[in-house]
Design a protein around this nucleic acid. Structure first.
Lengths: 226, 226, 226, 226
DNA sequence: TATGAATGAGTTTTCATTCAT
DNA sequence: AATGAATGAAAACTCATTCAT
């Protein structure tokens, strides 16, 4: 976690540092990212950065566990309480997509926990974040199961399936829609309006529909499926 | 692609190099992996490696596009032609899981195309591999759609959903089953019998069932769902 | 030398600083020791330390020339005036060993003047301390020579021999007795009772016996020596 | 230990590196010494130095355990076998002094094993060297004891006393004779003729006389000793 | 006077790649 | 073609000291 000095920093300076850190760690893997670069671009002496953070990992950890989640929460807001389980899930998914579209860098940072790495400390960090996310999602799905909207023999397995769908799965779909590669999108921090809310809603619907119904063709309903 | 010299190499020497390269690139991200390490461990002069491959990327590219797929094909074999679409998909998925369990390193290498990276060349490579994989999967699903076993309004979207399920999704599930982290599994090159064929089949079934049916509770089936 | 502010410091704060400084400079060489560490561990702002001392060297100098000698004097007490020259020397040596055993850190600090270093200022300081010590010892030996207990053609040379015997020589012997390395002993500030007074006396006797035979005036040979 | 590449180095380049390394490590403590400096002054890229040695410690270790002893042996030659135990010891001591006077830097390097340090690896190295030296000296004294030239109740203790006398003790004496500080002497690599062989012999005699009287077997006491 | 943040020079080390033999 | 040494750029990090409040 940052040292206290970090929080007492003049707003402008702190913002500069945070911004460049987000850019660096969103654009690059932890292993590829460089504290030196961050400092250089933020125009802050390397020595000073070490006044604010224990080390490279400390900064990264703070971004991943504090700053990125905070900014995401700010954007995404409270989950809707209206409608049935599936409606709420759809709303939830749609917000995630909006976040990705409007703040690609932050979204990428929020997803960095899935990055593979040989560094054991970073791996530990990533693992913790992933597990927290899965736990949260599991709770959501549990609610769905209790309201018997959702039926899964093994909720842990189901949670992982759903997580990949609304995580990397949807991201992929969105990028395809944008006709862009992730990195082109990252280059511009600003919003990307190329994927309007209407289309977003349609995609969210498709995802949730998939989760809800799968791909089995039910038209010619006959015979017995499990 | 490897230079011609590579193919003229004494078998034993070549195998040594390939083996160590696989180990290194499976254990670490491209950025983290080190040609020096590979050469050192394979006991082959670094300079020689540059006789066989253009550079680090060239070796990596060959592994990802040629060697790993070849070894995977060897293990996985031809897709079954028996049974209906879903049975065949299940069989396909189950083979993938077997591969993961028996050859974790190769499986990880085969999945490395999903790794994010700031390196544009590596990104290009990864992208190409992903797209090829998606195209292949899409063809499979198309067949399913034609046989009207499968119904998807947007096949591209569906393909991506299915891909993440049977890719990172199932990998995650398997690791959870093994109670292991990916890296512990990588450490041992050898087979991991901890996940027997029976359980594997059950999981494959669950995955395909999910794809086929989703999670919607059909118990109180009445009326039409959205 | 410390600035006046240092002496006006609240006792508790001053003690904390001094303690941590002693620990740091006893455990590590001047070059290895870190003012930052001292301040951090004493929980005193680095900036403040510079209010009390000119710089790192100033603190070190004060410890070596003032504080450590003071604490040593406190423990060692006045040299005995009883008995003949050799008895008194033995007593003196034995006290030194007791100091080493009971206060290893202070003893190490007191001996730091013998540390080599490339830093000219530190070297000057060390040299001055060494010379003062030699001068003092020389005076003691002179007394012995006058009482013709001791006989040395060149007293300067003799002084240096004696100094190394009762300095690094005895320290080495004691550590061997303790079966310990210096650094293990330093780790524990507290007394180390593993070398009881009886054994200590025996060792002191051995050392002085060695010196006595080497320098002892054998002219009035009578009585029995070991 | 150095990598094989080091030994295959062009003589001139290797000599340059070794020379600067000796200078650096003789002038400065391990902690104070800098590989960067050595490389810079030897005009060899830092990266290249790492082709020859594992790391800073590796170079240091080689100097202390291989190169310095080798050069010392070369200068000091075989110990004389003529005369009685004390004569031979005197000869041995005198050679040591000659080495100090003619090759101050190498002598200082050879003595660096006595340097204190907080670095555990360096401490281990130093300890090993010291112990080897003590063992060797002990063997010498044992021979003396067997020929009953020397009498010591505890040979380990005696060894340590003798070691400090002919080590730091004599060095100190010599430096005083030269009227110089160690570092002034180090500055000039070349011989220092200010302490002629005659005076050297006198000092060696004094040292051995001191030791002889301290440890000399007085059993067959007759006449006056030298 | 106390504080605590700023800073810049310096350190060790790693690596991909080139090049001469 | 094989080798293995050379190299330079870059990284993470530490520390004594200064300075503004």
């Amino acid at each position: 976690m940052p040292k206290s000095t970090f929080f007492r920093l003049p707003e402008e300076r702190r913002a500069r540092l945070v911004h460049e850190a987000i850019v660096e760690f969103a654009d690059r893997t932890y292993a590829e990212a460089s504290l030196s670069q961050i400092a250089r671009r933020a125009n802050i002496p390397k020595g000073s950065v070490y006044q604010y953070f224990e080390d490279k990992l400390d900064l990264y950890r703070w971004l991943l566990t504090e700053e990125a989640p905070r900014l995401k929460r700010e954007f995404v807001g409270k989950p809707s309480m209206e409608g049935d389980f599936w409606t709420r899930l759809e709303d939830f998914v749609e917000r995630g997509m909006a976040f990705l579209v409007e703040h690609p860098r932050l979204a990428r940072l929020s997803a960095a926990a899935a990055d593979p790495t040989a560094n054991p400390e970073v791996r530990g960090l990533h693992k913790a974040i992933c597990e927290a996310g899965l736990k949260e999602l599991r709770a959501v799905l549990e609610a769905g199961a209790e309201s018997s909207a959702l039926h899964a023999p093994d909720l842990d397995v189901a949670t992982r399936f759903v997580a990949t769908i609304i995580g990397p799965g949807l991201t992929d779909v969105v990028l395809k829609e944008l006709g862009a590669e992730l990195h082109e999108v990252l280059a511009s921090d600003s919003l990307r309006k190329r994927l309007g809310p209407k289309r977003r809603r349609a995609l969210a619907h498709q995802a949730v529909h998939f989760i809800r119904k799968g791909l089995g063709s039910e038209k010619p309903r006959r015979g017995k499926e499990t």
